[in-house]
Each structure stands twice: as structure tokens, then as C-alpha cells.
Amino acid sequence: MEKARGVRTERIPLGKLEVGQVLTTTLLDEKGQVLLAKGKQITRPFLERLKARGQEYVLLEILEEVEAVAATEDVPLEVKKKTLEDLQDTLTALSQKKSASIQPLEQDVRRFVKGVRDHREVVIPIIQLKKHDDFTFTHSLNVSVIAVFLGKFLGLGEEEIRLLGLGALLHDLGKLHIPQEILQKSQPLTPEEYRIIEKHPVTALKILDEYAAIGGRIKNVAFEHHEKLDGSGYPRRLFGRDISLLAQITAVADIYEALTSDRPYRKALPLFEVVEYLMGNAGYKLDEKVVTTFVSHISPYQVGDVVRLSSGEEAVVARLNPILPFRPFVRLRIKRPDGTVVLSEEIDLSRSLILTIVGEIELQSQIQVE
């Protein structure tokens, strides 16, 4: 398998640096700010300035090679379609207080877990089912798939991941009791409408409490996924460790999926904005370990995506880079005089200083449900 080049940092004592050394890599401070660029010579005044400001350690950028990742399917499309049907039937029956069983969903989640266990990538494949008129159902399915992958990368056991996946499927059950004119409203919500929205976790818990077969940890996901570490969430304004881990994982998956989806009141946000939002709330409103694990395992691109490069050329994503996910392997789309398109040899964007992706032309990785 070919190698992808990535970057890590190595922390070394300031005393290891010597006057006259020429850097073969970039020198950083412990906040990641560049102190001295590759190819520059270390001088005595430079070292004295670092000592004067109390600098005891510096970071060296180290290039390393790892196996490049070829994307594979995460959870088969037929499993997702079957789960979507089961989810719609089950949530509708639960919300209408009809006789219902979550056994079909349990079987679906077991298939998810198997797909995740067998998945060989080190990135979460953000391949989503999209069907705008059934947002609550497709959103819940996408959140469950993302949460299950996230649970795997957080090191949860298989039973924990199963409970996580099932709780995530049921997390928005209470929204089926919210009028569509509120859920689909394109204008800002009124304070009263916000209060109605904030009741959906309580509604979900009341419904789920009527089913003895549904365990408490699953119910907690539906009840607590809008709680925040700083107590600013709802419905109970819980703090920190009072919020269950499975709910905190679901919260990150929920926010990501919601912000990257088109809604009546806004278009989907670019991935970099969503990542900035998640990182900005890590350790403050959202669990820091959950957020950093998620961000370090998502890929902004999928194999087959058509992108525009900074050179103005079009390219197809050929393979993913697990260390530098924003720098995948691409192949240029070359148009012949006769109108046909051929692909160039692979280009490793992690090795290019000037060639970057500036936008997507198509989103071929999105799976449409007919």
C-alpha cells in the first residue's frame, strides 16, 4: 500500500538547540506558533530571546509516512434504507402511543455495529441519507451512524456502542409532537416557539417511560442530548458529569449533522465552520475528548468527490489522507479536444505547498433515497 505523508510534532528542551544549527524542519512554540522556519540558522540572539521570555521547550515538526486510506462503504445502503423504514414505523407508533416494539431497531443497530467493527478506515465516513421531507427520520439515522463510529474511536465496548446507536436513533422522538409549522419555519422562532422546541426531550422521556423494555441509558440519550457542560442546556440545565457520556457523544453527532444539513431557515454550513463551532465549544459546552476525537476522525471529502483546486483545475478525490484529511490524494480531470474526460496520475496534496482544494463542484458521496 502506498504511503501518505503527515506531520506530527516532537517536544524538545530548549537546551538541545545549538547556535549555528540549520533547521531541517519548522520550529514552533508550545502553542503551535512558528518560531523559526525550515532552512533558517539558529543564532545566539534568537536563543537568548526565547530564554528571556521563559521558553523551556519547543516543538519540532516531524514528517512521517503512514498508510494511505482507501474509502470503503461504512454501513451498506440497503441496511440504511431498512433502518429508515423501521425508524419511521417505530417512532410514529411510539409517538401515537400505539403498541410498538424497538426490536427491529435493535437488529438494525446490531448491523450498524458490525459494519463499524469491520470498517478498516481511521476516518468517519460522512456518507448521509438525504430526504428533505422526512428530516427528523433521516437526521436521526445519520446521527446514529455517526455516533456509532464515534463510539468506536472513543474505545467503547460493543454493548456500549449498541446502546449508543439505539439511543441516537430515538433521540428526537419528542419532535414528532411539535407542529410542522414550527419545525419547518423559515423565519426566526418566537420565544414561545423556542419553549415548545425545548420540551421535546421531556416528551420523548414520557413516551419511552411507558415501555419497560427500553433501558434507562437509552432513555437518557433522548432526555439529555441537549444538555451542556456549563449548565446552559435543556431541559434540566445539567452540569458536567451529570450528563451521561452516551448523551454527550450523541450531542456532538447531532450538532454536526444538523449544521451540515439544509434547513428551511438556512443552508448547510461549510465543514470548516462546523468544525470551528465544535472546537470553540469543546471543554466549555461539549465534552472536549468527544469533540477532539470526532474532529480528528472526520474527512471533509469522500472518494469520488469532484473538487476545484487553487490552480483552477478540476480534480477527483482518489484516496483519503488519515493524518491530513484536508489534503487527500487527487487525480486531475483533463478534458480532451473531443470532449471526453481522462484522469491524471495521483497527486498527493500533502506534498504540495501551493496546490490546495478551494471548493467542491459535486457531492457524489451523498446517497439519495428515492
Rank of each mutant, 00 (worst) to 15 (best):
E224W: 11
E224I: 07
E224S: 10
H225N: 00
H225S: 04
H226G: 05
H226C: 01
E227Y: 10
E227M: 08
E227P: 08
K228R: 14
K228P: 03
L229W: 07
L229H: 03
D230R: 02
G231T: 01
G231K: 06
G231D: 06
G231P: 04
S232L: 06
G233F: 07
G233N: 09
G233T: 10
R236D: 12
R236S: 07
R236A: 04
L238E: 03
L238A: 09
L238R: 14
F239T: 09
F239I: 05
F239D: 01
R241K: 13
R241G: 13
D242C: 06
D242V: 02
D242Y: 13
D242G: 14
D242S: 14
D242W: 12
I243H: 03
I243G: 01
I243D: 08
L245S: 05
L245G: 02
L245W: 02
L246G: 09
L246F: 13
I249H: 00
T250H: 04
T250E: 11
T250N: 14
V252A: 13
V252D: 00
V252Q: 08
V252I: 05
V252G: 04
V252R: 03
V252T: 13
A253I: 00
D254A: 06
I255K: 15
Y256I: 05
Y256W: 15
Y256D: 00
Y256N: 13
Y256L: 12
E257S: 14
L259A: 11
L259Y: 12
S261N: 11
D262Y: 03
D262N: 15
D262R: 11
R263T: 09
R263A: 09
Y265W: 13
K267W: 00
K267G: 14
A268C: 09
A268F: 02
L269A: 13
L269N: 11
P270S: 09
P270A: 04
P270Y: 02
P270Q: 05
P270E: 04
L271H: 11
F272I: 13
E273N: 14
E273D: 12
E273K: 15
V275E: 15
V275R: 11
V275W: 02
E276Y: 12
L278T: 07
G280N: 09
G280V: 10
N281F: 10
N281P: 07
N281S: 12
A282L: 10
G283N: 07
G283F: 10
K285R: 15
K285A: 13
L286Y: 15
L286D: 00
D287I: 09
K289S: 10
V291F: 07
V291Q: 10
V291C: 07
V291N: 08
T292Q: 14
T292G: 03
T293H: 06
T293A: 00
F294P: 11
V295H: 08
S296H: 11
S296C: 02
S296M: 06
S296E: 12
H297D: 10
H297Y: 09
I298G: 08
I298A: 03
S299A: 12
S299C: 06
S299V: 03
S299E: 02
Y301I: 05
Y301G: 05
Y301C: 04
Q302V: 02
Q302I: 00
Q302A: 14
V303T: 12
V303P: 01
V303Y: 06
G304M: 02
G304F: 03
D305T: 01
D305A: 06
V306E: 14
V306Y: 02
V306F: 02
V307S: 03
V307I: 05
R308Y: 02
L309F: 08
L309P: 11
S310W: 11
S310A: 07
